[in-house]
Amino acid sequence: MQYAPTVRIVEMPCSGTIDHRVLLQTFEDGADGVFVAGCMEGDCHFLKGNFRAKKRVRQVKKILDEIGFGGDRLDFFNLSAAQGQRFAEIVKEMTERVLQLGPNPLNKKAKKEGGAA
């Protein structure tokens, strides 16, 4: 099993700890796309962590759409620790999506600023 080297994995104790601020920060820090992988529905050790993460991701997508950044760069997937193959598929899917969307618009601006300097 292989997956694209385009992803950087950030481990969280539970997807339910994901926060709107963290997600927005990733984009401010230059991420082209982000996906949150929560446990399968019904399998959350803390019962509702993955459902809460899903709702928060939905809300941040809404904010990203509202400010013109585009919510498509962010998504949520249910995934168990035993689904390595599925993880690789999701990485491929997100990578293709992000390639289609192009680089993070903030990176383009940063590059331009850097170039001018």
């Binding site: 926060d19 709107h20 601020r21 927005l24 920060q25 984009f27 401010e28 904010i63 990203l64 509202e66 400010i67 013109g68 950044f69 618009p105 903030l106 601006k109 331009k112």
Partner: peptide
């Protein structure tokens, strides 16, 4: 506190996109 940070981040992203 949280909503304040989220709004600040949203405004920063928006403005950076506008150069």
């Amino acid at each position: 506190e949280k909503e304040t940070e989220v709004l600040a981040s949203s405004l920063r992203i928006m403005r950076k996109m506008e150069d």
